Amino acid sequence: MVVRKEKKSRKMRGYRTMGWGSKGQHRNRGARGGRQVGMHKHKWSWLVKYGKDWYGKHGFVNPTSVKISAISLRDLQTSIENGSIKIDEKDGKKIVDLTKYGFDKLLGSGNLNISGLSIIVRHATEKAKQKLEKIGGEVILTPNS
Rank of each mutant, 00 (worst) to 15 (best):
R10H: 12
A128W: 01
E126V: 07
I120T: 07
Q130Y: 03
I120L: 11
E126S: 08
G34L: 10
R29W: 06
L107T: 15
L106K: 10
P63I: 02
I80A: 13
L73C: 08
L76D: 00
W44H: 14
G38Y: 02
N82C: 05
K105V: 03
L98R: 05
Q77L: 05
K5A: 12
K41A: 09
S45P: 03
E126D: 08
S22Y: 03
H42N: 15
K131Q: 12
G56V: 08
S69M: 06
V96T: 04
T78V: 09
D88H: 05
R35Q: 10
E126N: 08
T142I: 11
K11P: 00
W54G: 11
V48W: 07
M1K: 15
G136M: 02
W20H: 08
G24M: 04
K134L: 13
R29L: 04
L117Q: 01
G110C: 02
N113W: 11
R10V: 10
I140R: 00
K43G: 14
W54C: 01
H58F: 04
Y55W: 11
I80C: 04
K49Q: 08
T78E: 07
E126H: 09
L132A: 04
Q36N: 07
K5Q: 10
E89A: 09
H40R: 14
E89K: 11
S45Q: 04
G102S: 05
Q77G: 12
Y15S: 13
K134F: 06
K129V: 06
G110Y: 07
S118P: 05
K105C: 09
V3Q: 14
G51T: 04
G59R: 11
I135Y: 01
H123D: 14
G33M: 05
A31I: 09
I114C: 06
I71T: 13
D91I: 01
N144R: 14
N113S: 15
K127M: 10
